[in-house]
Amino acid sequence: MNRTGILQVVSRKLAPFVVLFGFYLVSYGHLTPGGGFQGGVVIAAGVILLLLGQPPERLEGLVNVRLFGLVETVSLLLFLGAGIIGIILGGAFLQVLLPTGSAGRITDAGFIFILNVVIGMKVGAGITVICYRLFMES
């Protein structure tokens, strides 16, 4: 398959904005449409777009699979930890312990913001690793 420079240039210029939009979706998940899963998938799509633009011989070792797997596992443990801290201190799973304030601000949502960020990290890292391993499998 012959390839032109258009794919490389467009993916390099476009992918950072896709990743930024994913971060926006994750961090504003409780205020606007979006959330952890959607933002994570958009982040993973940005990373995949970045990978697609590279020539195939430069792909080797571009994504640290062990690090991404570690991020995925640790985010699962963080989610469980946030729930179990609620059991210990508040009496229920995922009991909100942080102070909640007025609606409309990111930091006033209690645990929801943290849980969205954790789920975004988990989904983004997981889908990136899946597609990268598939990419390298040849």
């Binding site: 979706l25 449409p33 959607q38 998938v41 958009v42 993973a44 799509a45 995949i48």
Partner: peptide, 14 residues
């Protein structure tokens, strides 16, 4: 719009 975002990201992207 939530489902639309998921559909666009998963269906059209990945």
């Amino acid at each position: 719009p939530d489902v639309a975002l998921t559909e666009a990201a998963v269906g059209a992207g990945v």
